[in-house]
Design a protein around this nucleic acid. Structure first.
Lengths: 133, 133
DNA sequence: TTCAATAATAGTAATCGTTACTATTATTAT
DNA sequence: ATAATAATAGTAACGATTACTATTATTGAA
């Protein structure tokens, strides 16, 4: 059966403290106070928490996975310059259903997951872009 | 300036022949008739074609990128069992605009790309699942 | 029709996020 | 208390992709 561990608590705390962190960012944060933490431990706990629905895994192409302790339904946008991830509105359910049904009809694939990925340029990076000489 | 190459033509032909192939699948296909093709050459040509808008890159989390010579607007579903990718309907433009505006307002991120990822179980894999003893 | 400049290539090494492995440590039900 | 066994630390391996380098091939101009 499942057991508790100090490391898992540290990971949960760091998840709350940081903003959509990657596994490596959590690892670095925790190492500040507990240098012997293993990157594998961070990954193992993140995976089990994401599988158990305790946290959200945010997977974008090309950038490392990020994790979100806020599990209530919402979408994410990633900045293509700095890689930062932002929360935004959830997908409208009626639209989800529409695409879902059409897709099932056309392809025969029974949909289990729908995720809208958005990419763009965040305010900070847009400013940097404008002010470069 | 850009030059033509026999290898690029082979890659284009293999793209038409195979169904949403990965770079490795194209490599294997081309090697049947041209064993000295390099995997790097396949990747380089796919990247330049995708960057130039000649073909579509389909990036799903966890599975290798797939490529599509059909560049007209549409979405994809991936089977979580076999990894096969299917074409489906495009995103409704009014939905795109709605989420686009809301997201820009909330996050300040100027959206450049919106992709709906869908995953599910294809007919073939559903049948295999049902008939296993 | 050469031919020099330089894209594009083949082959291989390196990268990076992530998972797998293994011996050790820590938790927990009895 | 203690035996069973999760969970760990540390390290090796993996798979997709990119980077590097010497060689080959294309092409615009002489």
């Amino acid at each position: 059966m499942k057991r508790t561990s100090a490391q898992k608590e540290m990971i949960k705390n760091a998840l709350e403290k940081l903003d959509h962190p990657t596994a490596a960012e959590l690892y670095d944060e925790i190492r500040k106070t507990y240098p012997q933490i293993s990157l594998g431990t961070v990954y193992r706990n993140l995976n089990s928490m994401a599988d158990g629905g305790e946290i959200l895994r945010i997977s974008f192409p090309d950038i490392p996975d990020r994790f979100d302790p806020n599990i209530h339904e919402h979408c994410h946008v990633a900045c293509i310059k700095c890689g930062k991830v932002f929360d935004t509105v959830p997908l409208p359910p009626d639209l989800i259903n529409l695409i879902n049904e059409k897709t099932q009809e056309i392809t025969g694939v029974k949909i289990t997951e729908q995720i809208l990925f958005m990419r763009g340029i965040c305010r900070e990076c847009a400013n940097l872009e404008q002010n470069k000489d």
